[in-house]
Write a protein that binds this DNA or RNA. Sequence first.
DNA 1: GTCTATACTCTGATAGAC
DNA 2: GTCTATCAGAGTATAGAC
Lengths: 210, 210
Amino acid sequence: MVKPSGQAGKDTKARILEAADAVFVRHGTDGARMQQIADEAGVNKALLHYYFRTKAELAEAVWRGVASSFVPGVLEMMASDASLDEKIDRFVDAYLTRLSRHPYLVTYVVSEAARSPDRVRAFYSSGRAEQARRVVRKLRAQIGEGIKEGRMARTTPEQFFVTLAAACVYPFAARPLIAAGIGFGAKGFDAFIKRRRRELPAFLKRALRT
Amino acid sequence: MVKPSGQAGKDTKARILEAADAVFVRHGTDGARMQQIADEAGVNKALLHYYFRTKAELAEAVWRGVASSFVPGVLEMMASDASLDEKIDRFVDAYLTRLSRHPYLVTYVVSEAARSPDRVRAFYSSGRAEQARRVVRKLRAQIGEGIKEGRMARTTPEQFFVTLAAACVYPFAARPLIAAGIGFGAKGFDAFIKRRRRELPAFLKRALRT
DNA sequence: GTCTATACTCTGATAGAC
DNA sequence: GTCTATCAGAGTATAGAC
């Protein structure tokens, strides 16, 4: 499995996967071209088929990689005993930081998930579905407690979590529309996100309280 | 321009455009097939090229149609003299209703916009850019007033508007992930949106106040 | 205007040399 | 393992009859 090294560059398979990731994420599975992947990896088209039999197989590998990195320790964090306020802080920080570095990731995940049920299944494989349920259970308990003590408005863990995710993820999904609509370029968008990192946690906390 | 009627069905061009809309929105421009459009329109493939010279041209027509309906009177409403609270109410209601009926619309808009700068330009043509600026100006005035009177937390119109849009739009973008992750099917998702329509306005209003 | 038949291009996939 | 050359199929676009 481990190549003895000495060949050109690092591990070829890894280079191909890296290039594939870039191309698939930017253009979507339908829009991606094997030729472009080969070019970016610095190898021949035929070699792609040597390592990954078909385009579909390569696409699948890319998707799994993205899904693994997209739902990182964050779910674990959300299921932890940390307070809701702390979870908001950490979630906002983690996602705004992460997604800033990967402009096309959200678009890719959203469009692939919508168009291929297989993708969704793969996304929740390897016990991640159970992890999601744990998050919901934990949030439900914390929210219920807050409501009982009269310091939180009535809501459900699902609504809360989706709104939290929405506030962090959506700006990147709609990035070109926002940038053009509000009338600032790439630098302006970065500033927008920077400010958002400061403001959003307080915004969400106010929304939760009574 | 107006066909004398008498031919099969209603206006053929309109039927083609309708079918194209369905197929492009569901599969994206790259994933769409002219054959499928022809089938759904009940005509031959060649006829598509008779009315719209190329696939790209047809895709463009579909995009313009979607962009027109996607940013409807809502921008106008947001620029009006209505109070911020009222704007929240109307925006949430309008978008949750509209998007419930068009499951794939958000995914389509987001992915097309991300992958084709032309799309973004067309989106903001016909004076819509100016309209967006008017919205920002009006919101800035209203928020500024609220802050001065000490009843609103400090924020910018951009942050507010994006968060509002995010809370309404994102659930549909992430619909398959949410449905699978939270563990309910199509009916469960509808219930989720129904509840959201009730809760979200109050949630957002709380977030705005001091 | 609408159809059938077909041309042409793009691209994913394979064969086989090195 | 990696390359060159080539095939086969899908899919867009056109020609031309009706």
